[in-house]
């Protein structure tokens, strides 16, 4: 199935506008969902349901975590102090290419990871799911 990234972006933007009550112009590729757009976990569920309805792509809230963590075990992803490890950062760079790995090395708390997730990162995830439903 071929779907243009622009098409997915428009669907994501519509879902974010409807779920969060934000303005269309606020939904830009680099905006973070939890920070810039102030989404909460309950909003993420709403957004994912709306995308399922508009694009037929099923992504659960837990899938987001799985996608970001990339199958790396909890022990390998973070250090005992709760900071994302070098292995974890390398994984994050694959799904969130906008992050500055060197600036975050040894400093990114595990609970801060999803705060880096942007509209563009969500678009990429949805696009991967639309074009290859088995992909995470």
């Amino acid at each position: 199935m071929t779907v243009a990234k622009d098409e997915v972006f428009e669907a994501v933007r519509a879902a974010l506008v409807d779920a969060l009550g934000v303005e269309e112009e606020d939904v830009v590729a680099e905006a973070t969902l939890l920070g810039d757009l102030e989404a909460e976990s309950i909003d993420l569920l709403d957004i994912l349901f709306r995308l399922e309805r508009s694009l037929g792509v099923k992504i659960s809230a837990a899938d987001l975590g799985e996608h970001v963590q990339g199958g790396i075990s909890e022990e390998d992803f973070g250090t005992a102090e709760g900071v994302v490890s070098d292995v974890g950062l390398a994984q994050l760079a694959t799904v969130m290419p906008q992050i500055d790995v060197e600036a975050l090395r040894g400093k990114l708390p595990a609970e801060g990871v999803m705060g880096l997730f942007t509209v563009d990162n969500l678009v990429d995830l949805v696009l991967a799911r639309v074009t290859s439903p088995a992909a995470v």
Binding site: S41, S60, A61, A62, G65, E66, Q69, G71, E74, G82, A110, E111, M114
Partner: peptide, 11 residues
């Protein structure tokens, strides 16, 4: 717990 809704977790 310090996990958030992590991979494979469900509400």
């Amino acid at each position: 717990l310090g996990t958030g809704l992590g991979p494979r977790m469900r509400w």
